[in-house]
């Protein structure tokens, strides 16, 4: 088996991070813990980066929400946020700032593990070779399924892994409705629960990015209460 994937845990509760790292190490991850934002930024500045980060929002000093843009400036590493329970605003803000997924804390470590594995798997499905893979083209939106890159009229649209997956799912089913439940399952590898707005936020970010790249029509149609459809 290849070298174990590295997880960075960023949380001020060191007892919790110790326990979590023990748990993750049991499940073949190597773990590094940070108890605040400073050492994390220092590590990022040294061009170190893990396979995935688990970032707590409620931290003294730099909060998770303040760190997230800084992390995004450095690397595309997927980030799972740990939010306070019920803090919906934090969740949505986090997703909008480019987090890939969130979990409410206290969280079931088995579920956290499952999500970490799902996201890591998705990111690693991206072959790192430099030549492009299968190309999909719709409405001027071009997806390179090998490089996992997206462009609109030769202009690169900078999508996170999750956003790329969302768009790929929609484009692959262009003209058909993709339900929120299916989208959640295929992209986030978990079941859609009631009031889970993660997918909506990801879709909305994809839309914004496409629009910023110059795509004027909204090619992703919302079917209220059902799901999304990429216009053919």
């Amino acid at each position: 088996m290849a070298a174990s994937n590295q997880v960075w845990l960023i949380d001020d509760d060191t007892t919790l991070t110790e326990l979590l790292s023990e748990y993750l190490e049991q499940n073949n991850f190597s773990v590094r813990c940070f108890d605040n934002g400073e050492p994390l930024l220092a590590a990022l500045n040294k061009d170190e980066s893990p396979d995935i980060m688990v970032l707590d929002i409620m931290m003294p000093g730099l909060t998770g929400l303040q760190l997230l843009p800084a992390i995004r400036n450095h690397v595309d590493t997927p980030v799972i946020m740990l939010t306070g329970r019920g803090d919906e605003i934090d969740r949505i803000l986090g997703l909008e700032l480019g987090a890939d997924d969130y979990m409410a804390k206290p969280c079931n470590p088995r579920e956290l593990l499952a999500r970490i594995q799902a996201i890591v798997r998705r990111y690693q499905a991206a072959p790192t070779q430099s030549q492009g893979g299968q190309q999909i083209d719709h409405q001027g939106v071009n997806l390179d399924m090998g490089m996992l890159t997206c462009s609109y009229q030769d202009q690169t649209v900078d999508l996170t892994g999750i956003e790329f997956s969302v768009l790929a799912e929609l484009v692959n089913n262009a003209g058909n409705l993709v339900s929120k439940a299916d989208l959640t399952e295929r992209v986030l590898h978990r079941k859609l629960t009631a009031y889970d707005r993660s997918i909506d936020v990801h879709v909305s970010r994809v839309r914004q990015k496409l629009k910023a790249a110059g795509l004027e029509n909204d090619v992703i149609k919302t079917v209220r209460g059902k799901g999304y459809q990429f216009i053919k």
Binding site: D13, L16, L19, Y23, Q26, C107, P109
Partner: peptide
């Protein structure tokens, strides 16, 4: 209560493993 519960949950998962 959330912090100790979060720790308890991880500890329990470890123990279960």
């Amino acid at each position: 209560l959330r912090a100790p519960i979060a720790r308890m949950q991880v500890a329990n998962a470890l123990a279960a493993q």
